[in-house]
């Protein structure tokens, strides 16, 4: 197991394995998002209160989930990078930042579009919305820090520390609706309780979440491969590749 992980952590091996993995993931993502969209737009019934307007959750919930999941992924990479000095962790962290920023943006925008007709306002400074906005700024901060420092080792270290410290925001986002009075509703799907959503609406939603997750893996791998090539541009195997 350790031998396999060590192999994977070598840039060359990662580059090859990621290349093989991408087509498989693409097929899986098309299946999951395809079923999810069909279920979301055609098969699932309208809501008893909101009618068809609730269907925006099929984009909103997966985006919000991914925005937090990607950040946790980056925090894990930051830990690997700072403590174990694994080079590949910095590559994955760098590749993930902009994807996470886009998912945060998508979650905020779709929530806003839903909020206007349902709540009666585009935006309110409640704990959930504000902490999600801070998450967006954290992503932008990581991207800005990465491009502000020219020295690679310094920038990897600085952004890893920023990511780790910022990860305190993740539990705050998740529990904000329970710790404070908010306009945003509580979680619909929870690991421990029975979901507060009808099964016919739930399965397409789970499929969309899984599909978005695989989509993130695809885009992250593509970006990480480019990053690996750039970082290893002076090594022999990259020169071999582009002879």
């Amino acid at each position: 197991m350790y031998a396999f992980l060590y192999k994977l952590a070598s840039p060359k091996k990662f580059y090859q394995m990621a290349g093989q993995l991408i087509p498989w993931c693409s097929g899986l993502a098309i299946l999951l998002i395809g079923y999810g969209l069909l279920g979301a737009l055609v098969l699932s019934p309208a809501d008893y209160q909101q009618g068809d307007a609730y269907r925006i959750i099929y984009i909103h919930v997966p985006s919000a989930f991914l925005s937090m999941f990607i950040y946790l992924m980056m925090a894990f990479c930051a830990l690997l990078s700072l403590v174990w000095r694994i080079k590949l962790a910095d590559v994955v962290l760098t590749a993930s930042a902009s994807i996470g920023a886009w998912f945060t943006f998508l979650a905020l925008i779709t929530g806003s579009i839903w909020g206007k007709p349902m709540w009666g306002t585009w935006w309110i400074w409640d704990a959930r919305l504000t902490s999600e906005l801070i998450l967006g700024f954290l992503y932008l901060g990581v991207i800005a820090l990465k491009s502000a420092i020219p020295n690679r080792e310094q920038k990897d270290k600085a952004s890893a520390i920023l990511v780790l410290v910022g990860s305190i925001n993740i539990p705050i986002i998740h529990y904000s609706v329970y710790w404070w009075n908010t306009l945003h509703q509580g979680a619909t799907i929870s690991r421990f309780a029975k979901p507060a959503i009808a099964p016919s609406m739930l399965y397409p939603l789970l499929s969309m979440i899984a599909g978005f997750l695989v989509y993130y893996v695809i885009v992250m791998l593509i970006k990480a491969r480019t990053e690996v090539l750039y970082r290893e541009r002076r090594s022999t195997w990259v020169k071999e590749l582009f002879k």
Partner: peptide, 14 residues
Amino acid sequence: QVLAKHDEKYMPPI
């Protein structure tokens, strides 16, 4: 200003 608070429950009308 009056805002409606939505709960976390989603179900079909039936």
